[in-house]
Computed example of a mutant assay.
Amino acid sequence: MIGENTRVPKVFISYAQENSAHCREVRRLCELLRENGVDAWIDEYDTHVRQDWVDWMARQVQRSDYVLVIASPAYRALSDGDLSAEVYRGIRTEWKLIKERVHADGDDGLVSVLPVLLPGRSIGEIPALLQPHSASRVAVAKLTRDGVDDLLRMLTGRPVHPAPPLGARLPPSPEHRATVTVPVPTWPRRAWLPAVAGLVTFVAGLLLATTPDVRVPGLVAVGAGLALQVHGFRARPRADDRSVLALRARALLEEIVTTESRTLQRLLGDTGDPQPADVRFLPSLVRWRPDNTTATAGSLSTISRYYQDLDPERLLNPGRTRRGQDGPRHPAGAGLGGRLPRHRP
């Protein structure tokens, strides 16, 4: 894909030699491009030696990063087939090579073959193959440094207003934040059965204690009922009980798996890439150990250190690079100037 890079872009300028004034304008355009760091080339730079011009045209069209088609009435007429085959033979062959590049390169051909309007030219003079009305074109208002600024920025991939970097994503609202629902553990039979029996015995003992004849057995029943209730209360599930911890760990594990799945789907949706880059989560439910024991693994500190030591990863969506070749650079009348700044101050 053509875009901003560190190497000098190589540009070939294709034009119809209609008259001397038009040729002077094309030559001035080429000089402006070279003065501003673009390796632009025209046929007049190679007229001092004998050339096979068909081979020369093929090399220029195929090896240049960009081909500038200078719009003019003659260029539009020959591209439409309205001129005799006896005139403009050279530019006719050149246009055939340009058409082949546009067709073969697809989207890159649309980007790399640019129609250019010099001062006083109209959109109707652009060849129809280059989509004068439905695709971008470059208009040079004046043959000055400021007049070719838009063309320079398109050739070097340096927009006037570059897109700012993306900021932080908006956090979820409080009502949509992930919450872990921990199931309430039920009392086992060894806890609730003594507690219920103790309550019944306690109530019965109170009733018997109010009767003088059976006061002593009633007080004994009250004590037994209290003892049963204490035993049942102590047998209830506690926060550090293994069954409670297992329930909480399983609920947390399910929430992590769900959250990881949603996050992965969102990331893949943002990048448009069906395959992530090393995004894996392999959960396993391990036995819990308190940190104050002599165990060396499996504690909460171990889990915490594992997540703290993870290296942050990023999803990558590598793009494809554009196929191109560097043609030989020959000295021209004007040396290459400085590179265009990234954006206007």
Rank of each mutant, 00 (worst) to 15 (best):
Pro212Phe: 00
Pro212Ile: 00
Pro212Gly: 04
Asp213Leu: 09
Asp213Ser: 05
Asp213Thr: 13
Asp213Gln: 10
Val216Phe: 13
Leu219Pro: 01
Leu219Ile: 08
Ala221Asp: 01
Val222Ala: 03
Val222His: 15
Gly223Asp: 04
Gly223Gln: 05
Ala224Asp: 02
Ala224Gly: 10
Gly225Pro: 03
Ala227Thr: 14
Leu228Lys: 01
Val230Met: 05
Val230Tyr: 03
Val230Ala: 01
His231Ile: 09
His231Pro: 01
His231Asp: 07
Arg234Phe: 06
Arg238Asp: 13
Arg238Gly: 15
Ala239Arg: 10
Asp240His: 12
Asp240Gly: 09
Asp241Pro: 15
Asp241Ile: 10
Arg242Val: 05
Ser243Gln: 03
Val244Asp: 01
Val244Thr: 15
Arg248Gly: 05
Arg248Asn: 07
Ala249Asn: 15
Ala251Met: 00
Ala251Glu: 00
Ala251Ile: 02
Leu253Gln: 14
Leu253Cys: 11
Glu254Trp: 02
Glu255Leu: 08
Glu255Met: 13
Ile256Arg: 12
Ile256Ser: 11
Thr258Asn: 08
Thr258Glu: 14
Thr258Asp: 12
Thr259Arg: 10
Thr259His: 11
Thr259Phe: 12
Glu260Asn: 13
Glu260Lys: 06
Glu260Thr: 12
Ser261Thr: 14
Ser261Pro: 00
Arg262Lys: 10
Thr263Leu: 06
Thr263Pro: 02
Thr263Phe: 07
Gln265Leu: 13
Arg266His: 12
Leu267Gly: 09
Leu267Ala: 12
Leu267Ser: 10
Leu267Gln: 15
Thr271Trp: 09
Gly272Asp: 09
Asp273Ala: 14
Asp273Trp: 03
Ala277Glu: 11
Val279Asn: 10
Phe281Trp: 00
Phe281Arg: 06
Pro283Asp: 15
Val286His: 06
Arg287Asn: 07
Arg287Thr: 14
Trp288Thr: 05
Asp291Cys: 00
Asn292Asp: 12
Thr294Pro: 05
Thr294Asp: 11
Ala295Asp: 08
Ala297Cys: 03
Leu300Cys: 13
Ser301Asp: 09
Thr302Leu: 10
Ser304Val: 02
Ser304Glu: 07
Tyr307Lys: 03
Gln308Trp: 06
Asp309Leu: 05
Leu310Gly: 07
Glu313Lys: 10
Glu313Ile: 14
Arg314Phe: 09
Leu315Ala: 00
Leu316Gln: 08
Leu316Arg: 10
Asn317Trp: 08
Arg320Asn: 06
Thr321Cys: 01
Arg322Thr: 04
Arg323Met: 04
Arg323Gly: 07
Gly324Pro: 00
Gly324Asp: 07
Gln325Asn: 08
Asp326Cys: 04
Asp326Ile: 06
Gly327Pro: 01
Pro328Lys: 04
